[in-house]
Amino acid sequence: MKRRDFIKSTAIAAGGLLIPLDKSDASLWDTFFQKYFREMTPEEKKNLAKRLENEYKEKTGVNINIKTNEALPAVKFAYGLDLSRCIGCRRCVYACVTENNLSRNPQVQYITVLEFKNGEKWVSDLEESNKYFDHKEQPEPGHFYMPVQCQQCDNPPCVKVCPTQATWKEPDGIVVVDYNWCIGCRYCMAACPYGARKFNWAEPQVPSDQFNPNTHYLGNRPKFKGHVEKCTFCIQRTRENPGKYPACVEICPVGARKFGNILDPESEISQCIEKKRVFRLKEELNTNPSFYYFFSL
């Protein structure tokens, strides 16, 4: 390495340690000293969203919208997954990646689909699972599938252990992360019993022409290296009024995925819980998930 190259790369690296150098000075200052999201006034939240939108526009030339809207009153989300129907096609995984602007390289995925052989142990011991299955057609005969994602626990171990309160549970039941407040210690990843929390080991890469412009600050907005992220029940969709289903629910070709407001007794999810025998993953850990598995057949 030439000396000049060496000095240059060293300087870039030293800068990279702080904040990407492609930002203006004012933006750099605002980024570094950004306040804790939950303590911002509505005005500050609006300015923050503007700033982040501009930053993305400057970087890629693409316009995006970053919402900061709060939880709707009298809403608490819950999720249902019909294991009898799931065929393990992983369409949910990829719909989630596209909707939530998850890094394509290195790959970040919120949903993990586990494959089990019929008759193998699987309920409280997932050690026989295979997440790297690769068949021509789904489902593979003699196997069944269990997709796992954030269970949006009512007693979330990740929130309990976070040293900076960078992750918390919203009134509508969604556990969210303030990516700017997270320091990347990864204690939450050790604490989560469902492998739901994902770390950006490198700068996440999403082609700007594939970037979903409809984003939420606590959800699928542009992300960066060194922080943790996770499933937010597609907060940018479900918090709309009228709301949309999460992308994984919408895409599921066999209708295995159910979603709704658990406070509304007529909602599909409430009816599922009422009419089916449901169970939750790793009940012995007392995390109280808002994610229910059941069998329709």
Partner: peptide, 23 residues
């Protein structure tokens, strides 16, 4: 080990105490 060590001071501003053993 930290992903964003330059923000370690967040721990001083919003310590999750006494809940987080890391604090």
């Amino acid at each position: 080990d930290m992903g964003k060590p330059q923000y370690a001071w967040h721990l001083m501003l919003k310590p999750n105490f006494p809940s987080s053993l890391l604090v």
